[in-house]
């Protein structure tokens, strides 16, 4: 990549890796939570909705600090993970993926939930009368109808994960090659004299990725509408 220097390229590659892991790992949970919020009727639904949306409202530093308290090496979950599975998240790129996944989760769930809500529950009822189990109804009716919405949610979450800064730097710091993602790198370049050119190139990369993600997710959302209308 002639456009980017080695340090810059390292940050972009790391960001891509972090965002891919964040989206892949959180997708099943996001879909399950979106189904619960769209179709479920249970006490505490509003509380679940609130918890899911919390990272959107809280200062990212707070989210990062809470993650550090919980998933740090001395935190209850972090200690359990290290003792049981030998997994350490704090100050590792996997920790950056966790922070990015949590920050992107509300966006992902929201897009999926909107898609699920456009599906007429009567269609699921009809499938049940035709002998389909709940799993088959989900796989053959609900999922195909919301698939573009699921992809749109994943793309938005990916873009958000690429750009996550506050929670990431608080939870896993800013270690070159391990946790220095694009935003952290921009921040670091701006701290040293003569770093503006590098920062600017990363800014351009960020803008391009964000724009592309937005456009693709818009197109996907339109395809949901067309599918549900049966054209």
């Amino acid at each position: 990549m002639a456009f980017l220097g080695p340090d810059e390229w390292q940050a972009v590659a790391l960001s891509l890796k972090v965002a891919c892991l964040a989206v892949a790992a959180s997708l099943p949970f996001g879909l399950a939570v979106a189904m619960l919020l769209a179709r479920g009727r249970f006490p505490g639904r509003q509380i679940l909705n609130g918890i899911v949306h919390l990272p959107l409202i809280l200062p990212p530093v707070v989210t990062g600090y809470v993650l550090l308290l919980g998933f740090g090496r001395r935190g209850p979950i972090g200690e359990f993970l290290e003792n049981t599975f030998g997994v350490v998240l704090a100050f590792r790129w996997t920790g950056a993926a966790l922070a990015a996944a949590i920050m992107a989760f509300p966006l992902m769930v929201r897009a999926m939930r909107l898609a699920i809500e456009t599906v007429d529950p009567g269609l699921e009822e009809a499938a049940a009368t035709l002998g389909a189990s709940r799993l088959r109804v989900f796989l053959t009716v609900t999922l195909p109808l919301i698939l573009p919405g699921v992809l749109a949610g994943a793309i938005l979450a990916f873009a958000k994960a690429m750009g996550e800064f506050g929670a990431t730097i608080t939870f896993v710091s800013n270690i070159p090659g391990e946790t220095r993602t694009v935003p952290s790198a921009i921040y670091a370049f701006l701290q040293v004299p003569g770093g503006e050119a590098s920062a600017l190139r990363l800014v351009i990369v960020s803008v391009v990725i964000a724009m592309a993600a937005l456009l693709v997710s818009e197109v996907m959302a339109r395809r949901v509408a067309a599918r549900v209308a049966g054209r």
């Binding site: 009567g122 035709l130 599918r227």
Partner: peptide, 29 residues
């Protein structure tokens, strides 16, 4: 449970699966 009652139900509003062809709708069950 509904899927095991083996009763064919024709709804007032049809409720065909919009993402499937007529053939796939017919052979769904």
């Amino acid at each position: 449970p509904v899927p095991r009652r083996r009763l064919g139900y024709v709804f007032q509003d049809g409720r065909l699966f919009p993402h499937l062809t007529v053939r796939a709708n017919l052979t769904y069950a």
